[in-house]
């Protein structure tokens, strides 16, 4: 508590072992309120596992995850491949709300608002699983957004989308952040990282190599690994 009492989330020495392999190796990181964090790193560095561990989907072998305050904040996660239930787009958003104990009129209202905010009103009643990849990802964002989470994890939400759909997703992520939701997102797209990031967390072999304000990271990465990574990933798009 003494050091940085304002951290929304503080992970200390997280170690995650999957299939006998140490995937996260005493990873520590702090998420301060109000920023948009982009997690970068090479393939297999442990970005996805980090997000899933922070979100509570993977129990760490050791280490701690502490949330600010006495209540666990509302969190949501959007995956690379959206998982839609076999029902209408609107019903998918309502499902997330129902699971979280929101019923009746408020549920319908919030679901409709979220659908509208991602620009899917026109197809709200279409079966979710026959929508295009881009529409499904926007729907996944609406489902998460409707929950009004304090923090939203996104794992390469645009990786399987064409540039147009990716741009839409980017715009929505920025809008969610603007409403006060903390964003922690991974991406392979450095252009996207530059547009969205306030700060960069760079992961190398299951550890945080650096956590740096975005401007500074792209101008002058602090770690050797990030320097190599940025060189290898040029040109930016």
């Amino acid at each position: 508590m003494a050091e940085r009492p304002s951290a929304l989330l503080r992970a200390r020495d997280l170690t995650v072992v999957l299939g006998g392999v140490t995937v996260l190796d005493r990873l520590s990181l702090e998420i301060l309120p109000g920023l948009r964090t982009i997690v970068l790193g090479a393939n297999g560095a442990g970005k996805s596992v980090t997000l899933r561990a922070l979100h509570g989907l993977i129990p760490p072998a050791s280490g701690t995850i502490d949330w600010q305050g006495d209540r666990t904040p509302r969190q949501a996660m959007v995956f690379q491949r959206p998982v839609m239930l076999r029902r209408s787009a609107l019903a998918n958003v309502e499902y997330g709300l129902a699971v979280n104990g929101i019923d009746g009129d408020p549920r319908r209202r919030r679901a409709r608002e979220a659908i509208a905010k991602v620009g899917l009103e026109a197809i709200a009643h279409r079966p979710a699983r026959v929508l295009s990849g881009g529409e499904q990802q926007r729907l996944a964002l609406a489902r998460a957004w409707a929950l009004e989470p304090d923090i939203l994890f996104l794992d390469e939400p645009t990786a399987s989308l064409d540039p147009g759909a990716a741009g839409e997703v980017e715009r929505i992520v920025a809008a969610i952040a603007a409403e006060g939701t903390r964003i922690v997102m991974t991406t392979h797209n450095l252009g996207q990282a530059r547009r969205l990031a306030d700060e960069i967390v760079f992961i190398h072999q299951g550890r945080v190599a650096e956590q740096t304000p975005a401007d500074r990271f792209f101008a002058e990465p602090q770690s050797q690994h990030a320097r190599h990574f940025l060189k290898g990933e040029l040109p930016w798009n």
């Binding site: 899933r52 989907l57 995956f79 998982v83 239930l85 076999r86 997330g96 699971v99 979280n100 489902r143």
Partner: peptide
């Protein structure tokens, strides 16, 4: 296999998960 992480992420318990799966595979 497809739904597990998404449902857990939303906070779905076992009972509701069974009902959701039965309905979705109807």
């Amino acid at each position: 296999n497809e739904y597990a992480e998404q449902l857990r992420s939303l906070g779905v318990g076992t009972g509701r998960a069974v009902r959701t799966l039965l309905w979705d595979t109807r």
